[in-house]
């Protein structure tokens, strides 16, 4: 499979890299694939919280790099989804503790034992980002529909290009159909037009996402979550299936229709 080692990155922080990683990895594992998720955000570890595995961590990625334990042994098994494993980041070290070649080595160790390996990249475009991207053969760029995020995603795309990586795929995260309809938020089309990348998913804003994350339960496991559904679709597309994009437009309200009728915009 070409899309085996997948790095999720964004440039800007807080756009939902870890959430996307945790959810898509969970969705694939729930379908029976063996999935490893590597948290490459050394010093600011988060992926364990999103997956609800913070109390099970014994070893982390820095132990693996130091040779304390082989990568496979350091993996934390997910408590809900079997087939899903997490290699946590170290919280007490910083980005310099893992070099690109270390990450390549870890991925090589795990490659034959998994169907998918996800790498959750740190924000920024420095060393840590390069470490996360180097072993990847597929890159997913997560962007929010706002200019700062788009510009950063564009920068990251340019750097990946310069590193000789294949063109990243795009997930537009946290789009709020109500705000788009009111003209307060950029449309998916605006984002895609600027970045001109293959669209892998459109994830609507989900008011319940915070509580899923706080409970450590990935949203993809819940039928009622719209963001969960969108992220399940992303997993399907990674498997090569053609899934139509969800229609997330809101119906125009009665008042807006009247306003439009009378020439207001």
């Amino acid at each position: 499979m070409a899309d085996k080692v997948i790095c999720v990155t964004s440039g800007k922080g807080g756009v939902g890299k870890s959430t996307v990683t945790a959810n898509v990895a969970t969705a694939l594992a729930a379908k029976g694939y063996r999935v490893a998720a590597i948290d490459a955000d050394i010093g600011l570890r988060n992926l364990d919280l999103v997956l609800g595995l913070e109390n099970r961590i014994v070893y982390d990625i820095v132990h693996v790099v130091q040779g304390v334990i082989p990568a496979e042994k350091a993996l934390v098994k997910d408590k809900r989804t079997k087939n899903l494993f997490l290699l946590p980041a170290a919280q007490t070290k910083d980005k310099s503790a893992v070099k690109p070649e270390d990450m390549v080595k870890i991925v090589e160790e795990l490659r034959d034992k998994f169907d998918f390996i996800f790498i959750d990249s740190p924000a920024g475009i420095e060393e840590g980002f390069k470490t996360a991207v180097t072993p990847a053969d597929t890159i997913i760029v997560v962007a929010n529909p706002e200019m700062a995020s788009i510009r950063d995603a564009d920068r990251v795309t340019g750097i990946c290009e310069a590193m000789g990586k294949p063109e990243p795929k795009l997930i537009v995260n946290r789009i709020d159909p109500k705000k788009v309809a009111r003209g307060d938020m950029l449309d998916v089309n605006d984002v895609v037009e600027i970045l001109s990348l293959e669209l892998l998913g459109i994830v609507p804003e989900d008011p319940n996402m915070v509580s899923y994350i706080n409970r450590g339960e990935p949203a993809v496991l819940f039928e009622e979550s719209i963001a969960g559904k969108a992220l399940r679709n992303v997993a399907e597309r990674l498997l090569g299936k053609e899934v139509p994009f969800m229609d997330i437009r809101v119906e125009e309200g009665f008042l807006e229709k009247i306003k439009k009728l009378f020439g207001g915009s």
């Binding site: 510009r151 564009d154 920068r155 340019g158 750097i159 600027i194």
Partner: peptide
């Protein structure tokens, strides 16, 4: 090609770009 954010192209003469010039380029 499209110039992405952070990229810079210069020419002492004319410049033709077969692509976009994105924000930050």
């Amino acid at each position: 090609k499209t110039l992405r954010s952070g990229e810079k192209v210069t020419s002492t003469g004319d410049l033709i770009i077969m692509g976009d010039v994105n924000p930050g380029a």
